[in-house]
Design a protein around this nucleic acid. Structure first.
Length: 568
RNA sequence: GCGCCCGUAGCUCAGCCGGAUAGAGCAACGGAUUUCUAAUCCGUAGGUCGGAGGUUCGAAUCCUCCCGGGCGCGCCA
């Protein structure tokens, strides 16, 4: 479906051609409502290129512009902007078109790609904590949006299940394990033995060496150690799954580090043979002498002791995703500290001749309200499950105050929808690279740009339809008697313009912001325009606007991984 | 030392491939409620966009330097 933006862009292109000018500038929403709905700076750009007066050029373009029924004849303003104001009739028709469209006007991409999205990636033998939340939420949202836009998405959980920590876990398992505690809470017991072993290993050289030996045995395929490892990983996965269920996160594949274990020797051999890697000080190293930025940043892919490290694994991972999964693009949703690492890894990918589009999608830290990395009072990472439970608990408390008559089960369901939604929305609302200050009070606030605010707009609409007995929509034509109605309609038409932009720079925050503005426009409409009490044909028209608003809110929030309640 | 990221209203943040008078939310202040859920709406006030130069008709945005904060830089992941 064409958007207003694409329609205007076409007409503008025609006008430029007719005026014997090349395409230039960018058609954007008007920076101020006083300038209309859209604007373009083409005349300014062309004026600069050709050394001509931009206002004269703008007049020339406008003279050739065929507005049709779409908009008023465009005006020239300021230094040479061309402003477009949509005609109400065109807004009405476009809104009806969106109303009839399952996809709410969003067209699928013309160049679908197969995209592997690597996000989440917790470490086995440790519970998930706040440090995993941004990668998980951001990756999931990008996956949902890319999929909706018609890409083939493979969500991959690259679990850290083969690190050196398993030497300690296995030693602890053999020497410290409390079987009963394991049965009660497996992951907690694994964490306990890991911590205790870690503590002892740093004080007792004998324990340290014993752990090293356990790791070597594991990597050599020792049956007993492999069994222990398998059990630990299984317990971890169960724990992750519980959290993923709460968060409504789903993976297509979960190829952790261990999946690549037996491919590592081949990777090193190939890179050595291809001249990409060389031996230096006993280790196998890749140098990037011709890349200024990396010239003094070599990458070790096999340690002097013959062991492999995570760089080797990541190269093997690219191999698999490109050669076996046939990925056109791989998106790594991984924190900013690993920027250098991915530059190195991607450069190796290029040297291997891979054409896939490799992106490191960085994001900032989660900070506490003291502006330092978010930790518990005792200085440990905040377990994700506890954080999510706290969100639901707080949401529940507010529901008890606001709507005490709801049933117990419904209250709990709503609390989960609101609490989890609040956590997700607060995170996604912010541009991903900025550090994010975690604040319960802000995200669950009853006021402002929060998930509950957006959910409330949806709930108000559902309430209207319940009260009206869920009548079938009578789709006649829309009536714009009040400014709030046409403003809402224009906003609804913008959904199709916003969604594709999210992938340009990986910015779910622009979708979150759009949804806030939509909810805001709706609330204004809601205050100004009674729906059920109004006479026909306004009543049907307003019901249609309500219905479409609900659908856009629901779909938009769904693209962010957020659910909506029917009541709250 | 080198490299990357960040510095915008009292607070939290948008805006950053140059464009019109720099926008939200919170907090503050003033209004609106016989409610289709006030978890709402309307309004007021609040800024040398860290600083200094430069490019440009035009700079929060691009370039250089400086200050301040974070992170990363060969055998952890």
């Amino acid at each position: 479906m064409e958007t207003f933006q694409s329609l205007l862009a076409k007409k503008l292109s025609d006008a430029l051609k007719a005026a014997d000018l090349p395409d230039a500038g960018e058609l954007t929403p008007a920076s101020d409502p006083r300038f209309g709905d859209y604007q373009i700076n083409a005349a300014l750009v062309l004026g600069k290129q050709r050394g001509e007066n931009p206002r004269v050029l703008a007049e020339k373009i406008v003279a050739h512009f065929d507005a049709g029924d779409l908009c008023e004849p465009p005006g020239v303003a300021g230094p040479g902007f061309i402003n477009f104001a949509l005609r109400p009739g065109a807004v009405g028709e476009k809104t009806m078109e969106v109303l009839r469209d399952e996809r709410l006007g969003v067209t699928e991409t013309e160049s679908p790609r197969r995209i592997v999205i690597d996000f989440g990636s917790p470490n086995a033998a440790k519970p998930m904590h706040v440090g995993h939340i941004r990668s998980t939420l951001l990756g999931d949202a990008l996956a949902r949006i890319a999929q909706f836009l018609g890409h083939e998405v493979i969500r991959d959980n690259h679990i850290g299940d083969w690190g050196t920590q398993f030497g300690m876990v296995i030693w602890g398992w053999k020497n410290l394990l409390d079987r009963q505690a394991l049965q009660r809470n497996p992951l907690a017991e694994i964490v306990r033995i890991y911590k205790e072993t870690n503590h002892r290993a740093s004080n007792e050289p004998g324990v340290r060496e014993a752990c090293r030996q356990e790791l070597i045995k594991l990597q050599a395929g020792d049956k007993e150690n492999l069994d222990i490892w398998n059990e630990c990983v299984a317990f971890s996965m169960q724990d992750f799954e519980r959290t993923y269920k709460v968060l409504d996160i789903h993976y297509d594949i979960q190829c952790g580090e261990s999946f690549y274990h037996d491919r590592l020797p081949g990777v090193v051999e190939r890179l050595l043979k291809g001249g990409i890697a060389e031996i230096s000080e006993g280790a196998v190293v890749v140098f990037f002498r011709d890349v200024p930025e990396l010239a003094d940043k070599p990458l070790i892919i096999r340690k002097r002791d013959g062991g492999f490290n995570y760089a080797t694994t990541d190269i093997a991972t690219i191999d698999y995703r490109v050669n076996d999964l046939k990925a056109d693009a791989i998106w790594y949703v991984v924190g900013a500290p690993q920027t250098l690492h991915f530059k190195q890894i991607f450069e190796i990918g290029r040297r291997e001749g891979y054409r896939a589009d490799l992106c490191h999608i960085v994001f900032g830290n989660v900070l506490g309200e003291d502006r330092k990395l978010m930790k518990t009072r005792s200085g440990e990472n905040v377990p994700l499950r506890e954080l999510l439970e706290e969100a639901c608990r707080r949401a529940r408390k507010i529901i008890d105050e606001k709507n005490p008559d709801l049933g117990e089960d419904e209250k709990n369901d709503i609390a989960a929808t609101i609490g989890i939604g609040a956590v997700k929305y607060a995170d996604l609302l912010q541009y991903r690279t900025t550090d994010y200050i975690f604040s319960w009070d802000k995200m669950l606030s009853l006021h402002g740009n929060t998930a509950p605010y957006l959910q409330n707009a949806y709930v108000r609409i559902r309430s209207i339809f319940r009260k009206a007995g869920n009548p079938p929509l009578k789709i006649g034509r829309l009536i714009f008697a009040d400014a709030a109605e046409i403003n809402l309609a224009k906003r609804l038409c913008q959904f199709a313009e916003i969604v594709p932009q999210v992938l340009n720079g990986f910015r779910p925050n622009i979708l979150a912001n759009y949804l806030f503005e939509l909810a805001n426009s709706f609330h204004t409409f809601y205050e100004a325009c009674p729906v059920l009490k109004s006479e026909e044909p306004a009543r049907s028209s307003r019901l249609a606007l309500c219905d479409l608003t609900a659908r856009v809110l629901q779909r938009g929030l769904d693209l962010l991984g957020i659910k909506v309640p029917e009541r709250m």
